[in-house]
Design a protein around this nucleic acid. Structure first.
Lengths: 193, 193
DNA sequence: ACCTAAATGGGGTGGCACCCCGTTTCCGTC
DNA sequence: GACGGAAACGGGGTGCCACCCCATTTAGGT
């Protein structure tokens, strides 16, 4: 990350200060943290913050980029799991739990999904769709996940759960519920836990 | 509604003006509508609005009370449905779709769930838990819904979906996915629709 | 008609996002 | 090492907001 694009050294320094301050402040106050305060903490004028990050969304994306990368890496690890359907469910749970714990992440991803202003949507969203799509395809090819399930719906669901709670336990429970469904089947509950 | 508690006639008039203005404004701008503008549209000072509704949450609850009542009534109608599990799923879909369409409703219900400040939580939430709980119990007694499923989780899920999208189609699809689960079962997809 | 408690709202305070534009800083060139 | 222009900066302005204070008005019982 950190955009190696031609940039003056002082500009690069400020960029990094802002992201660092934003990380701290967003962790404390969530996605609607005060941009003024972030600029103050970073030791730059508010205009500088707005120049580097034209929208709140742009700043949040810089803040969360690393964490999203971590989630994607986790998807690749889980892909080696014996049961692809379990791997998919586990990964969705990880995404939802991470989003629930990390104040602002869910709101940040949501915002990108809502406004179709940016042509190529948020890079974070694309990363998650790619990583999750691979997991989903494995499970569908194995015949254990219904073919009409779409990765974007699963991710939206995980994100929705993150948005609705900040409790990791609740988030995990809701994802388990959503992946298993509500029905009691003749042959018992499939993979109850 | 409208709190028949002893109140001077002018106060009652203002209370109603404010709720009416809030309905219009929240429909246009969502749950974070400007309280100042609502007061201006209602023809009262901002202090009057804050006196009647100490928190934004209190105002939103007054605005959405009727709609939540409608959803609860719908639950009672569906309770007569032949298949209780279908009734439950249909109602959850209705809740999620309604929340997705009605700007601010989901955020309003969420806020009540987040802050355990109010001892008896939001009245809207209690109403939904009661109405949905009855439906869930019917389905569990009929043996078609797993006994460990909790109504609060289902409602949180429906609310989460509302929060994550404002598109009725997407909301309905996500609820269908969550109630059916992701798995492909030997005997085919249960209630695919 | 009067009187008191209830209710009101103009205006103050502090905070915010976002932008303008005069000033400072960097860095390639000589 | 000095210089000059482009790049970057940031103080301060604007307009909006939530929330509160308190002097004034008003309802409605007697």
């Amino acid at each position: 990350m950190a955009d190696t694009r031609s940039r003056r050294a002082d500009a690069q320094r400020n960029y990094e200060s802002i992201v660092a301050a934003a990380e701290a402040e967003v962790a404390r106050s969530g996605a609607d943290a005060s941009l003024e305060k972030i600029a103050r903490d970073a030791g730059v004028g508010s205009a500088t913050l707005h120049r580097h990050f034209p929208t709140r969304q742009a700043l949040l994306e810089a803040v969360f980029h690393d964490q999203v990368e971590g989630l994607c890496a986790q998807a690749h690890e889980l892909a080696g799991n014996a049961d692809p359907a379990t791997a998919l469910a586990d990964w969705l749970r990880a995404v939802a739990v991470h989003g629930a714990i990390t104040r602002g992440l869910a709101a940040s991803l949501l915002a990108s999904g809502r406004a179709p202003t940016t042509p190529a949507t948020s890079s974070c969203e694309v990363m998650l769709v790619d990583a999750g799509g691979a997991l989903l395809r494995l499970a569908q090819d194995a015949g254990t996940v219904r073919p009409e399930v779409a990765i974007i719906d699963l991710l939206t669901l995980a994100n929705a759960v993150s948005l609705a709670t900040e409790d990791a336990g609740v988030a995990a429970r809701l994802i388990a519920l959503a992946t298993e469904g509500i029905h009691l089947h003749a042959n018992g509950v499939p993979a109850a836990r």
